[in-house]
């Protein structure tokens, strides 16, 4: 009786703070809430998160934010300085730079989301398998990982992008090919520290197969640190993508991509610096956001680092 009254009064906050969670959902929600509260203690992390949210909002609402077509050319009004009509001026084809930046947010978001979605499962699977099975499986998988790591990242991405030809999809494949090895290394290290844990031994005694142990018990435990690493790596993914775009290997013109915008505008930069200033600042801002967010996330999620 009294318990029920107490529960009704405290509402959702009380549900989140209840000392004895009932069931899985409540426990997960409580954990998330606790982490969120700790995350709020990192103002720079919040700034990073705010910029990332802004990027997502801008990418989704792009048509609402600007009335100009990012591709439509207007040669009569080329290289116009920033004004109320064109907030960031126009480029060498008379296209509105602001609307190209806004639509470029879509390109950037598309690239980083796909790279994360491709790289995380591949890295997790390879890393956990290498760590769990050990022996020659580990030897072979780690040799392959080392080979990919023995190229400087951009150079390897450049080589693959060159072989595949220009285009966003090819750039994503090329970046993914260079971005999975650190994830695999990390997942392997985590697995090595887990594989001798008692709860794994208990599951094994119950007759669980190796695959079931990896997929249902070890892999989920690696997820937090992998999320942190991927968030931190997003900054370099953005920079690599911009670099590929700058070298003409990213999005095919005239589609708006920040790196390519900086590249095509550089001929005119002395008279019209706004053409390259805007995309550069956009790239720097977004990768800074991922760095700040990732740093805070590492401190919150990585128990070894913070305690």
């Amino acid at each position: 009786m009294s318990e029920q009254i107490l529960e009704r009064r405290v509402g959702i906050r009380g549900w989140l703070l209840q000392p004895n969670p009932r069931g899985r959902t409540q426990a997960t929600a409580q954990q998330l809430y606790k982490n969120w509260q700790r995350f709020c203690g990192y103002p720079l992390g919040l700034v990073g998160l705010a910029i990332i949210v802004l990027l997502i909002v801008v990418a989704i609402c792009a048509p609402l934010l600007t009335s100009y077509d990012p591709i439509a050319q207007n040669m009569a009004n080329r290289l116009a300085a920033p004004s109320w009509e064109h907030l960031l001026g126009t480029d060498e084809f008379g296209r509105d730079v602001f609307s190209r930046i806004v639509y470029g947010a879509r390109t950037t978001l598309y690239i980083i989301m796909l790279v994360a979605v491709i790289v995380a499962p591949i890295g997790l699977l390879i890393g956990t398998c290498a760590g769990y099975f050990g022996g020659w499986v580990d030897e072979i998988l780690m040799r392959v990982t080392d080979v990919f790591l023995s190229f400087p990242g951009l150079v390897l991405a450049l080589g693959f992008a060159a072989a595949l030809g220009p285009g966003i999809t090819n750039a994503i494949i090329a970046i993914s090919l260079t971005a999975w090895p650190p994830i695999a290394r990390l997942a392997r290290a985590e697995t090595l520290s887990l594989r001798k844990a008692d709860f794994i031994a208990a599951v094994r005694l119950q007759g669980a197969s190796a695959w079931s142990i990896i997929l249902r018990h070890i892999l989920p435990m690696c997820v937090p640190s992998v999320i942190v690493r991927i968030t931190l790596n997003m900054a370099s993914v953005i920079l690599t993508a911009a670099g590929l775009g700058f070298l003409g290997l990213g999005a095919v013109p005239p589609s708006p991509e920040w790196g390519a915008m900086a590249s095509s505008g550089r001929e005119f930069m002395i008279e019209s610096p706004w053409v390259i200033a805007a995309p550069g600042i956009a790239i720097a801002l977004v990768s800074l956001a991922f760095n700040l967010f990732g740093d805070a996330l590492r401190d919150v999620l990585d128990a070894r680092g913070s305690e």
């Binding site: 900054a235 900086a262 590249s263 550089r266 995309p279 720097a284 990768s287």
Partner: peptide, 13 residues
């Protein structure tokens, strides 16, 4: 932080 965020080609420009 700036070194990990600012694109090198842009800083060069």
């Amino acid at each position: 932080l700036a070194g990990h965020s600012i694109p090198s080609f842009w800083l060069a420009l």
